[in-house]
Every structure is written in C-alpha cells, then in structure tokens.
Design a protein around this nucleic acid. Sequence first.
DNA 1: AGCCTTTGACCAGCG
DNA 2: TCGCTGGTCAAAGGC
Length: 183
Amino acid sequence: MAGPGDLSVPSKELSLSTPAGPVISEANATEDADIDGLNCRELSNNGASAGPSVLAERLSQDGYNWRKYGQKHVKGCEFPHSYYKCTYPNCEVKKLFEQSPGGQITEIIYKGTQNHLKPQASRSITAGGMAPLQPQEDRSYKFSFPTSDRSPPAFGDSNGILELSPTAKNETGGEAASAKQNS
DNA sequence: AGCCTTTGACCAGCG
DNA sequence: TCGCTGGTCAAAGGC
C-alpha cells in the first residue's frame, strides 16, 4: 500500500500543523534557493572539518528517538536525503537530513511538532548538557551546515527556519530551536 | 524478541 | 496532458 493507507493523515497534518501555511515552501523560497546550491555543491567540496561530525551525532540524537523510513537522492544534491520519523507514539515529527559520505551532515530539516518530552536518552544519547526540555511547538526547522564562511548563525528567523553554522551553535542543536521559539 | 536500517517501488503534486 | 521530483510505504535483513 503506497499512500492510501493510514499515513495519508499525518502527511496532511503536517501541512495543517503549520498555521503559516506551507512552511516548507517558505524555506525553499527564502534561503533554500541559496542554500540549495551551496549546500548541495559547496558542501561537497568542503565538509571536511571535525565540527560537523559531532553535530551529526548531536542532531541525529537530539534527544528524541528517530527511525529512518526512507532515503532518496535529490536532484542537485550529490548526497542522498535521509528521512526520519519520531518513534514516539503520538509524535508525528519528521526529520529530513542530508548527510555526506564522510558522515558530515550538510543540512537538517525538522517538520512537525514535538508533543512530548525528550525520552531519557534511551539509546546512546550522551545528553551533553541536555536538560529535560519542553515540548517544542515549532513547525519546521532548517539546520544548514555550509561549512563555509557564510553569515553568522541566523537565529532569530521569522519563518520558523533556523540556520545553524557548524562553528557557531554550541547551544544545543535542536534545543536551540525550542529556545528561539520560547523567545 | 524487538527495533532500526536499507532498497525498491508507488503515489501525489507541480511545472 | 506528460514528465519529473520529492516523499512515503512496505518487506527483508541485521544488530
């Protein structure tokens, strides 16, 4: 069954959960155009730092449990996109991230809203300075790792899209997102 | 025993 | 109307 099953609902909810409308579109219309070319190309050239490595683990294990449900090669990107879903029962949050062969994450996009607290590092989360966070009420976050010399971490985004640099986000990866939301 | 990862195919939306 | 891309599901295998 490909589609007309039960997952058709979450798909819609994703769109509905975004009062601002097509959040994804915003991401694409705002910086994606720029990032797309940069992330998918320049990153392939760079992405050879020791920073992203840690971030990769951090973001992959941002405190929630994710299950990979797909992988796809996107045009324009040398690296495939991995699709993750939150394994929490009532959580429909999805995470899309692009990872280079070297293990470097070049881009992470969160979709949906975390309606639950972070599990207590059930797997192997080192929770390095992670505190019991509150349910995030975001819609879509975009973490980009240009590994280049782009602009400083543009946190105060208004579109719900965050851009984090591999060198300036000691906060807490996804946590930063909730932080900015709380602001 | 249970959960996660991987690969291929299908469907939907948009240009 | 056709083609293309993106996104998601399902099954099998491995840890």
